[in-house]
């Protein structure tokens, strides 16, 4: 059973007036995520993992009034943004929650654990068992 861990957390941006992360803090965060990915890989549960750039780099595309509109910025402007995703394959929600508890960003954000419905394998849609 595949679950996606959606990592939401407040972004450090100029707009929020927060000071940028120190290089030390940034390096510490990168180390934490690197070791998290390693632990998931060793356990044989990691399908994919991705940490995203800040939402200030985001661009959205949507159909508005019959025409495609391209806009700068994220889907919704809110204090917390989607910052990364990890797809894991584990037997049940309880196992997924155990992995979610170990995500470094639980310390400064929220980890949403969502079961997948279908996914693409070799070009074909496969139901998530």
């Amino acid at each position: 059973m595949r679950y996606t861990l959606l990592l939401h957390y407040p972004e450090v941006t100029e707009a929020t007036g927060d000071e940028a992360l120190s290089p030390e803090a940034l390096a510490e965060g990168q180390r934490a995520f690197a070791s998290y990915a390693e632990v998931l890989t060793r356990a044989g549960v990691l399908v994919s993992g991705e940490v995203l750039r800040p939402s200030s780099a985001s661009t959205t595309v949507a159909m508005r009034g019959g025409s495609l509109v391209i806009q700068d910025g994220p889907f919704a402007a809110s204090k917390e943004q989607l910052g990364g995703t990890f797809v894991i394959d584990v037997p049940d929600l309880d196992a997924a929650l155990e992995w979610a508890k170990q995500a470094p960003s639980v310390a400064w954000g929220t980890v949403e654990v969502r079961p997948g419905a279908v996914f693409v394998r070799d070009g074909a849609w496969v139901p998530n068992d």
């Binding site: 059973m1 037997p91 049940d92 929600l93 309880d94 196992a95 079961p115």
Partner: peptide
């Protein structure tokens, strides 16, 4: 059922 909670 959908989130598959563990029966244990």
């Amino acid at each position: 059922r959908d989130a598959r909670l563990r029966f244990a």
